[in-house]
């Protein structure tokens, strides 16, 4: 016999279900007045530093049909590449930028939209700089465990080419599934849950 490690097990996930809006964005779901406003709705204010951008897209199932009941959260660094978090050890992030956003997909169109700023570059574990990126977390009915992925910027070609994460992807043909394309006033980032263009999801 040996001593037990005595580690607990993480609580197993269960789907967020079709009514995740009630708990996470109640004002959006038609339950006004319990909270002043839905958390994560706005990430910036008029003093936030950096280039204002919008990100728009859809979450598509295996038939290409957009999900109308998904909830997305994003987490990103400020314009200098610093996270607004106590675990950020490299310096103080812009106090006028939360770095965290939460948006549902529209109940009719299936489109989500974040208004944020373009993130700066953050070092990888070995110190090399990563390309600018935004972490995504997606939950919905039918998704048993929240999905993690990253969005990169298609117009950051040089940084993307040198990025340590993008470079470790064996099937380079799939890298474009992580690249948002600039169209009009927004970056377009569709997330494909399945199929030929299945987004690369991460085990983080």
């Amino acid at each position: 016999m040996v001593q037990p490690l005595a580690l607990l097990k993480e609580s197993p996930s269960q789907t967020a279900g079709p009514y995740v809006h009630i708990g996470c964005v109640p004002n959006f779901s038609g339950i006004p007045g319990v909270y002043e406003q839905d958390l994560g709705r706005s990430m910036t204010n008029d003093k936030t530093l950096g280039e204002c951008i919008a990100i728009e897209g859809r979450v598509l199932d295996g038939t290409g049909t957009p999900l109308k009941d998904a909830l997305l959260e994003i987490w990103q660094a400020d314009h200098k590449g610093l996270y607004n978090s106590p675990s950020e050890t490299r310096g103080s992030a812009d106090p006028n930028f939360s770095g965290w956003g939460r948006q549902p997909t529209h109940m009719d169109s299936g489109i989500y939209r974040f208004e944020t700023i373009k993130p700066g570059r953050v070092p990888f574990t070995d110190g090399r700089l990563q390309a600018p990126h935004i972490s995504f977390w997606i939950v919905a009915r039918g998704i048993n465990l929240g999905l993690n992925t990253r969005m990169y910027f298609a117009d950051e070609e040089e940084a993307n080419t040198a990025d340590p994460v993008l470079n470790r992807i064996e099937h380079q043909v799939r890298v474009p599934t992580l690249l948002a394309q600039r169209t009009g006033d927004a970056y377009r980032f569709d997330i494909h849950l399945q199929g030929e263009f299945e987004t690369i999801f991460f085990d983080i």
Binding site: W75, Q76, Y83, G142, N144, I200
Partner: peptide, 21 residues
């Protein structure tokens, strides 16, 4: 129809994952 079918990409704890609001 909502389950990814390809293998996940393993990515261990960069600053982007270990931080949070």
């Amino acid at each position: 129809l909502r389950s990814p079918q390809k293998a996940l990409l393993s990515l261990s704890g960069t600053t982007s994952e270990i931080t949070g609001p």
